[in-house]
């Protein structure tokens, strides 16, 4: 099987897995499907000539972020009752509206893509862009972006810390407002 075939296979897996994510009743199952979808996409990245991104997808996304999800789900302690209720919500009517809307959107997108005369790519071979190329660019012209990204993560950290930490106890003497 050539690499083109591989791409289609992994793309289909990604689609199928994503579809399963949104139709699952059980959160843990859904998470597993999400990880499958991410891994399949990592393969797609690799086949598109982006091995570094593929590695990051597995390490950071499927690894770190998903662990966060799993951890949270464990904390929620979802029980059988939740799952049953969840299955009640999953009636076909609730899918109808969004699916119809999105189908229209999709048809539009397909039309747009098909109307494109020719993509300007001339190469017949996938060019590999390795970690070195990415790295030297990232810490060259994009240096400031890295710095901002660190502040973004800091914001996530501070915000997440504040939201998730235990609620404070009420102080004994409340402030008295003067009229």
């Amino acid at each position: 099987m050539n690499s083109l075939g591989l791409f289609y296979v992994s793309a289909s897996i990604a689609l199928l897995a994503s579809f399963c994510v949104i139709t699952q009743k059980n959160a843990v199952h859904a998470l597993l499907y999400l990880i499958v979808s991410l891994l399949a996409l990592a393969l797609c990245f690799y086949l598109l000539g982006a091995p570094f991104a593929a590695a990051l997808q597995i390490i950071v996304y499927a690894g770190a972020i998903m662990v966060l999800f799993v951890f949270a789900v464990m904390m929620f302690n979802i029980n059988q009752q939740d799952i049953e209720r969840e299955s009640q919500w999953l009636s076909w009517q609730s899918w109808l509206g969004p699916s119809l809307l999105v189908t229209v959107l999709l048809v539009e997108v397909l039309f747009i893509l098909q109307s494109q005369p020719a993509w300007t790519s001339t190469e017949s071979q996938v060019t590999l862009i390795d970690a070195k190329a990415v790295g030297s660019l990232l810490f060259g012209p994009y240096l400031l972006a890295v710095e901002i990204a660190s502040f973004l993560l800091l914001a996530g950290l501070v915000g997440g810390y504040h939201l998730a930490k235990a609620l404070p106890h009420k102080p004994v003497n409340k402030e008295v407002n003067q009229p």
Partner: peptide, 8 residues
Amino acid sequence: LMSLSMLA
């Protein structure tokens, strides 16, 4: 950065 900090 703007929206997420605001979110918290």
